[in-house]
Measured scan of single mutants.
Amino acid sequence: EEPGTYGVALYRFQALEPNELDFEVGDKIRILATLEDGWLEGSLKGRTGIFPYRFVKLCPDTR
C-alpha cells in the first residue's frame, strides 16, 4: 500500500452524493486531504471521495 495517512472505518458510510465515498466497517481508507466542516477526502479500492471524519479512526502514520 502507498505511504501516507490511513483511517479505519468505525461505521458504515453510505454515499448520498456522487462525490462521497462509501465504505464498510473495518475498511482501511487512505486519507488524501482534510476539508472544511469535518470532512475528509480519501481513496479506497480505486475510488476517491469525501466522508465525515467522525466515521474513521486515524491510524498512526506508518511507512
Rank of each mutant, 00 (worst) to 15 (best):
I50G: 01
E20D: 04
L16Y: 11
G7E: 10
R63L: 13
P52M: 07
D37F: 05
P18D: 13
D37W: 00
L21F: 02
L21I: 04
D22M: 09
E41D: 02
I29Q: 00
R12S: 11
F13A: 01
G4Q: 14
G42N: 00
C59W: 08
G46Y: 01
G46W: 03
W39R: 11
E36G: 11
T48K: 15
L58M: 13
F51C: 02
L16G: 14
R12E: 06
Q14K: 10
S43E: 15
E2A: 05
D61K: 12
R54H: 14
R54E: 12
Y6H: 06
P60R: 09
A15Y: 02
G46L: 02
R30W: 00
E1G: 11
R30D: 04
R54S: 14
G42D: 05
G46H: 02
S43Q: 11
R12Q: 01
D27M: 06
A9G: 07
P3A: 08
A9E: 02
L10V: 09
E1C: 10
P60E: 12
G49K: 02
V56I: 11
A33S: 14
P60M: 08
I29R: 04
L16P: 03
P3F: 14
N19Q: 10
F55L: 11
I50N: 07
R54Y: 09
E41W: 14
I29D: 03
Q14V: 12
A33H: 13
G42A: 03
K28C: 10
E24L: 06
F55I: 04
D37N: 11
A33M: 07
C59I: 14
S43N: 09
L35D: 04
Y6P: 02
V56K: 00
C59T: 10
S43F: 10
L16M: 15
G26Y: 01
I50R: 15
D22I: 00
T62C: 10
I50H: 03
K28D: 01
I50A: 08
G46S: 06
I50E: 08
L10G: 02
P52D: 01
C59E: 12
K57N: 09
Q14S: 08
A33P: 07
R54I: 05
Y53M: 15
P3D: 11
Y11A: 15
V25D: 00
A15F: 00
D22S: 14
D61F: 09
E20I: 04
Y53H: 13
G38M: 01
P60C: 11
R30P: 11
S43C: 09
K28E: 11
F51Y: 06
G42V: 05
L32R: 05
V56H: 03
T48G: 03
L44H: 07
K57C: 07
W39V: 06
I29K: 00
N19G: 12
K57L: 05
I31E: 05
F55Y: 14
E20Q: 14
E24F: 09
D61T: 12
F13V: 03
I31R: 00
T34K: 13
T48Q: 10
T5K: 09
V25G: 06
R30V: 02
G42T: 00
T62Q: 12
L40Q: 09
E17P: 00
Y11F: 13
K28M: 06
E24G: 05
E36Y: 03
A9V: 01
V56G: 02
I29E: 03
F55V: 04
F23G: 03
G7Y: 04
G7I: 01
T34L: 07
G7H: 08
W39A: 05
Y11H: 14
E41P: 04
S43G: 03
R30Y: 07
A9K: 01
Y6W: 06
L21D: 00
R54N: 15
R63A: 14
E36W: 04
R63I: 13
E24H: 10
T62I: 13
L21G: 00
F23N: 01
L10D: 03
G38V: 04
D61N: 14
G7W: 00
L35T: 08
K57G: 05
R63Y: 12
I31G: 06
E2Q: 06
G42E: 00
P18W: 07
F13I: 06
W39T: 06
T48V: 12
E24M: 09
E36A: 14
G42C: 01
L40A: 15
E2N: 14
Y6Q: 00
V25L: 00
L10M: 14
D27Y: 05
L40S: 08
G49H: 01
L58E: 03
V8P: 01
A33T: 13
G38Y: 04
K45S: 09
G42H: 09
P60T: 14
E36V: 02
F55M: 13
V56W: 01
D37G: 12
G26M: 00
T48L: 07
V56C: 01
L10P: 03
R63K: 05
G49W: 04
D61V: 11
F23L: 11
I29G: 02
R47W: 03
R54C: 08
R54K: 15
Q14T: 12
E20H: 15
L21V: 04
P52R: 01
E2Y: 14
I31K: 01
F51E: 01
E24Q: 13
R47A: 05
G4K: 10
L16F: 12
W39K: 07
G38L: 04
G38R: 06
D22A: 15
T34H: 14
T48R: 12
F13C: 05
R12P: 11
A15E: 02
Y6E: 03
P18A: 10
P52Y: 05
T34Y: 12
D61Q: 10
K45D: 14
I31Q: 12
G7S: 09
L10T: 12
L32Y: 02
T5F: 12
N19F: 09
T5E: 04
C59V: 14
E2P: 06
R63G: 15
K57S: 12
D22K: 12
G38C: 01
E20T: 14
I31D: 02
T34E: 13
V8I: 14
L58C: 07
D61A: 12
D22Y: 12
P18T: 08
T48C: 09
P18C: 07
L40W: 06
T62G: 14
E1A: 06
R12V: 06
G42R: 01
E2C: 08
V25E: 06
T62P: 14
L40Y: 09
G38I: 02
T62K: 09
Q14W: 05
R63F: 10
F55T: 06
E2W: 14
E1N: 08
L40E: 00
K57D: 09
R54Q: 13
T48P: 01
I29P: 08
L16E: 13
C59M: 15
P3C: 10
E1H: 01
L21R: 01
S43P: 00
L10C: 06
G7R: 02
I50D: 00
L44Q: 02
Y6T: 07
V25Q: 05
E41H: 12
F55N: 07
V8Y: 13
D37Y: 05
N19K: 10
E36Q: 09
R63S: 15
P60I: 10
K45Q: 11
G26Q: 12
R30I: 07
L58R: 11
G26P: 00
G42L: 07
I50W: 03
V56F: 06
E41F: 11
I29Y: 01
F51R: 04
L16I: 14
R12A: 15
V8F: 08
W39L: 10
D27A: 07
P18Q: 13
W39I: 05
Y53P: 15
I31V: 07
K28L: 05
R63T: 15
F51L: 06
R30N: 09
N19P: 03
D27R: 02
E17M: 11
E41C: 12
E1L: 13
L32M: 08
T62L: 10
E41S: 11
F51D: 01
Q14G: 03
D61W: 10
V25R: 10
R63D: 15
P3G: 10
P60Q: 14
V8T: 13
C59P: 05
G42F: 02
F55E: 04
G4D: 13
I50C: 09
E2M: 13
L16D: 14
E41Y: 09
G46T: 03
Q14A: 08
L44A: 07
R47E: 14
R54D: 13
G7L: 01
V8S: 03
L35I: 11
A9M: 11
R47V: 06
R54T: 10
L40G: 08
K57Q: 12
G38F: 03
T34V: 10
E20N: 10
K57T: 11
I29F: 05
P52Q: 00
L10A: 02
P60S: 14
L16C: 14
W39N: 07
A9D: 00
P52N: 02
F51Q: 00
S43H: 08
F55S: 08
P60L: 07
R54G: 13
P52F: 01
I31F: 00
C59Y: 13
R63E: 07
D61I: 10
D61M: 11
F51M: 07
I31S: 00
R47F: 03
F13H: 15
G46R: 04
E24C: 07
D27K: 00
G4Y: 13
